[in-house]
Computed example of a mutant assay.
Amino acid sequence: MSGSPQAPAYPDLVRDLADRGLLSGRWRQVFEAVPRSRFVPADVWRQLPDRCEPVVGRDAWLALVNSDEPVVTQLDDGVEGGPGVATSSNSMPSMVARMLGLLDVEDGKGRARAAGLDPAQLLDLGFALYAGARLPGVRLIHKDTEEGVQVWVTREDGAGATAATGEEVWQYGPGFLWEEIEEAWWEYESAGRPDAEQFGLTVTERGQHVWLRGPSEVIRPGKG
């Protein structure tokens, strides 16, 4: 007589990432020491092609958390009664592993400086839209902390930064990604901190453009 199937175990996920060549020996040790479940709240959703499906029960929660899938952690910017659009998630472990590999972090490579803004401000939905257009290729993940939030940002060229509320910013890789993010924030602030409803998207045969308040006000990518 067979019992009910067990939920996937986190070590199996780490082993799979390592077998796929996504984790170096040092990053594998970090993944093994810090399970993904520490950063995932109790109420989550699975992202389906056409909707977000609530995850019910501990076994279903573990199955999703210990898989190589994104975990939706917030809908509609936290406002009840919305259409059910994912506005925050815990990223796919394989994507996180790839970004960490691109950072090429070694002892002594990090650069610390005072933060010019609270990283919690980066979670503003309007800013996410603005920064997505100004800083293409930049990805952000975050977790809540007792003091506020901690964020990790990376770019396809290997640039990266991590910042937590009340602490210094650490930057890695080429360029000064955090300075570019701060500059984008002050541009957004100067524009009146527009909410998501003031942004639009124009799609043509030649590409797509995000605009603010009108199709003629296209948000151009920065030079970073």
Rank of each mutant, 00 (worst) to 15 (best):
S190A: 12
G166I: 15
E167F: 01
V149L: 05
A184K: 12
G108C: 03
S216A: 13
P11I: 15
R28N: 02
G101C: 09
S216Y: 10
R26M: 05
G21C: 00
E180S: 15
G148W: 10
L140D: 04
D68C: 07
D104C: 09
L103S: 02
M1S: 06
S94C: 01
A184R: 01
E106G: 14
S91F: 09
V34E: 11
W178H: 00
G224E: 03
L48N: 06
E180F: 05
P8S: 03
G148Q: 12
G108K: 11
P119F: 04
W61N: 06
R113G: 14
S91G: 04
Y130D: 03
Q6F: 08
L129S: 10
R36K: 01
D43I: 13
L123H: 14
E217T: 03
V56G: 03
V169M: 09
P221V: 07
G3T: 13
E197W: 10
V71D: 02
V40K: 01
F199V: 00
R26Q: 05
W185M: 00
G192H: 03
V218K: 10
V71F: 14
E187C: 00
A42M: 08
D77T: 13
A7L: 07
L123E: 09
R36G: 00
N66R: 11
R15D: 08
V44K: 08
V56R: 13
T202I: 06
V65L: 03
E80T: 08
G110F: 04
D124E: 00
R139V: 15
W27Y: 12
A112F: 15
P70S: 09
V85R: 14
T87D: 05
I219M: 12
D76A: 11
A163Q: 05
T165A: 06
V138E: 09
V105L: 07
P54K: 11
V210F: 04
A112W: 12
G222E: 06
R28L: 06
T165Y: 08
R206E: 08
